[in-house]
């Protein structure tokens, strides 16, 4: 029966993925989703990837990182530089993405290994510094064209972002719902008890951080190859905070929450784009309101699961 349910939920998710892909396609050809909405969709997809990957580090593993935009910029600039070098060949996106991932892994290990050995929020300080350092490095390198940034051709459209959104979600959620994820959650819950369970907490903290960095980097590549321009300032500390707000608003530890919240906030952001000054104020007000009225975020730790739904139906049938 258990085995049955695993395949049933997998099948349900597969249907959701294919269904939403087809639905979006239909809506686009019917003209319901116009060019502007398509751009918003790109933003939403990229923000979801950023949010769930940060949620793995903060919400699941309990390690406070303020450097997510830094890893995003590594992915963006790796792709940017390689796209330039390859004159915008379609494959340059994926080569760039791969290079970004490799650099992000190395950098994540350098940042995380010394700090995550320690108990306490040293990671926050280290990642804060790292985010600024990477921005200054990019600002001063020739190959990245300094503060002016890079102008790039648009090489991908929403289907590519959709595919990477699906891949990111599957990888991060499957990781979380495995022995690895349970170990990460135990670190969040009680580090000493976790160690006493035989768990090398440093190893799992680093693992979650590196996985998170990989997907932030992928999101960066997607951003660079779909939005024409990348500049160091796009990936500043503010961007890390934006991602953090999405995670906190949706609920730390809830991927469903990150999805909902990334969607809402991306739409909000886009509609406020012409009022850049108010945007910060509304953001700040939003954060304060969440803290006061719903400190656990929109969805708390709730997670939508087909298995729960099926269980409910099964129980109803029995009752009838």
């Amino acid at each position: 029966m258990r085995k049955n349910q695993f395949t049933k939920t997998n099948l349900a998710w597969l249907l959701v993925i294919i269904g939403s892909y087809l639905l979006i396609n239909v809506l686009i050809s019917a003209g319901v989703i116009n060019k502007i909405y398509q751009t918003v969709m790109l933003t939403i997809g990229i923000n979801i990837i950023l949010a769930i990957s940060l949620n793995l580090i903060i919400g699941i593993t309990g390690q406070f990182s303020l450097g997510h935009a830094g890893f995003m910029s590594i992915g963006a600039y790796s792709a940017g530089v390689i796209v330039k070098m390859m004159d915008g060949a379609p494959s340059s996106v994926y080569i760039g993405m791969l290079v970004g991932i490799l650099i992000s892994i190395v950098v994540a290990l350098i940042v995380a290994t010394p700090t995550l050995r320690l108990k306490g929020d040293y990671l926050a300080i280290a990642t804060l510094g790292f985010g600024e350092i990477i921005r200054i490095v990019i600002q001063n390198m020739k190959i990245t064209n300094g503060a002016a940034g890079l102008v790039l051709p648009k090489l991908i459209d929403w289907p590519v972002v959709f595919v990477f959104l699906v891949i990111s979600t599957i990888v991060i959620v499957s990781f979380t719902y495995s022995a690895y994820g349970r170990a990460c959650i135990s670190v969040r819950e009680d580090e000493i008890a976790s160690e006493t369970m035989g768990i090398n907490t440093t190893k799992y903290k680093i693992m979650a951080f590196v996985v998170g960095a990989i997907f932030a980097s992928i999101a960066g590549t997607l951003y660079a190859t779909s939005f024409y321009v990348i500049k160091p300032e796009i990936f500043s500390f503010n961007k890390s905070i934006d991602i953090l707000v999405i995670v906190v608003f949706g609920g730390m530890g809830s991927f469903t929450g990150s999805f909902v919240s990334a969607l809402l906030i991306s739409v909000l952001n886009t509609s406020l784009q012409s009022f850049a000054d108010i945007r910060t104020i509304i953001y700040g007000a939003l954060l304060v309101l969440i803290m006061i009225f719903r400190p656990q975020g929109l969805l708390g730790k709730y997670e939508f699961k087909f298995s729960k739904l099926f269980d409910k139906f099964a129980k109803k049938e029995v009752r009838q």
Binding site: R182, A183, I185, S186, E189, A193, S194, M197, G198, I199
Partner: peptide, 16 residues
């Protein structure tokens, strides 16, 4: 205990 984990998952962490 790992307070936010289920009873069963607490045991599973022990078996990690």
């Amino acid at each position: 205990l790992f307070k936010e984990l289920t009873v069963l998952d607490n045991i599973k962490v022990g078996m990690n």
